[in-house]
Design a protein around this nucleic acid. Sequence first.
DNA 1: CTGTTAGCGCGTTCAC
DNA 2: GTGAACGCGCTAACAG
Lengths: 331, 331
Amino acid sequence: MSKTADEIARETGFSITTVRLVINGQSDKYRISAKTQKLIEDFIAIHGYSVNHAARSLKLRRTDTIGFVVPDLANAFFARLMASLEVLCRERNLLLLTVSSHDDAELENRAVANLLARGVDGLVIAPCQPTPPLENRARTPIVMFDRDYAQAPYPTVVSDNVQGAQEMTRRMLQEVKTPFPFLCGHADSPSIQDRISGFSAACAAFGLGEGDTLIRLDGEDSTAAGRRLMDALVGDGEAQPPAFMCSSLLVLEGALQQLKARFGRIDPTILIGTFDDHTMLDLLPNRVVSIRQNEAALAKQIFARLIEPAGQGRRQSARDVVAGALICRNL
Amino acid sequence: MSKTADEIARETGFSITTVRLVINGQSDKYRISAKTQKLIEDFIAIHGYSVNHAARSLKLRRTDTIGFVVPDLANAFFARLMASLEVLCRERNLLLLTVSSHDDAELENRAVANLLARGVDGLVIAPCQPTPPLENRARTPIVMFDRDYAQAPYPTVVSDNVQGAQEMTRRMLQEVKTPFPFLCGHADSPSIQDRISGFSAACAAFGLGEGDTLIRLDGEDSTAAGRRLMDALVGDGEAQPPAFMCSSLLVLEGALQQLKARFGRIDPTILIGTFDDHTMLDLLPNRVVSIRQNEAALAKQIFARLIEPAGQGRRQSARDVVAGALICRNL
DNA sequence: CTGTTAGCGCGTTCAC
DNA sequence: GTGAACGCGCTAACAG
């Protein structure tokens, strides 16, 4: 460990105050003699000094840390969001404490409690359950994102799922000009509800009736769900669907796996739509439309909500919506 | 904020020691009367209590945190490793502080310095440079992984790249029975050197001479590098290579992008080999061989090295090697 | 069984 | 220009 301010004072013979003034750059303000200053600075250059964050936190009641709880960092979206948040934190000398909940409500609660107990100065949560029972006694600023469970007593930032679904659906209809199915995992989550709304709206705008709006639901968001949904879709038929849309990359993966298992290959003429983007979609020969969330913009908005003066809308649980981008491949 | 132990003592009328004994579950040991215990527990149940980590750290000179520095969390390998490490940490009530260096030496140094200054109890680094100039004055246990820059003064844990490359090459030769190129990004890194050794060894074992061992190098690990390498490989020729191997997913992506750009499509008969695995490789119709690193085993080994008593081999900078798994698709 | 005490290192305030 | 002292909340050792 570097020296403490006390040690420096003792070993240089100056008083602790003098040393501190130099360390904190207030030497001019208090007219410390130039040579004293130089002496101390030289000593530090040799022996080093770094503040003891524990002591500092204890005194200032502030840890210079932000907690971040996500369902799963293996999900590229969360990883990218984390990267964006990290940049914002670094600019302000904050450290991001990231914990994954593995989509487990119990783990999520423990993570939140732990971070709160460690006195984070702010907390960002992508909840995996409707009601994170936060006993937030410290009144730590909290922001939720990604999933907007309506009742949340905290500001929430989400991507514009309605708009995204609508755009993607419109683009796909323009291409195939006929109804196509929307395979939805994690059907009970609010974001998915929004995506369904957007899909339905675009279908209606295209003149399709209720009966032509083909939505298939599954409870979980996984490749298994994708396989189930695709299995139910193709049934015993001999034809691969000309087009379909998925609620997430995982569902898409499962759906494609199922096609491959069932037909031995993926028909390259299928038009594919999916939420969330991934460079590996480049590998498909198919026409692919996807919605990429704007992680940087989301992070910026989250951060803004996090550090905005308390009471300025925090109580009203503001809800921010950030647009995504439509990405087209091979068309 | 929850009450402090002092407040609880004052407000219940007991002494701070009594309160603490109850809090720390040592009430039996010190024979605190049952009713005193109940009184205090009830008070806490109502008003809450959680230790102040800052004060605790200040006193115990221990933060119950582990620092983790990686080049890039968008890289699925690091994300998975982080997840594995997190589990190990949680079991021991440690919090993982993860920071990305974005493959920037300066950021890496700052991250390391910052974490060290914050007094992490251990530090795990996937270095992006040969010499992380660590002024580790606190003698914090440090473990390096993923990239083994030989001189590292700390224990290092890496995947068995020689063995992995050898196995993959052997499997591919068995399939195509003819020399094929190895496209290498980030050629100066030690892991890549190992992969090249393995590749060469397998080629030699197959009876191929030096001239048939086709290795192509690029300085960086990126899709751009992959495109460059593939471009140089196919030149003006009209044929796609029957088989090739890549040093990473990024290089593979770039190589495939280039094929697509050059020939309009990716020949599905190409045999592809790559380091690092990704479920999206399922989407390719091609035969694909890949090496998946064993993140859980790596994490376990890293953790073991991190918490092992200092001096037991730490100084000798142990080097652990963990085997990866060969994954075959469509063959 | 319970109470008292001495720091951990830092920031702040007041005194020389 | 410089020094001394207090308190943040906790742990640990010792004194009843």
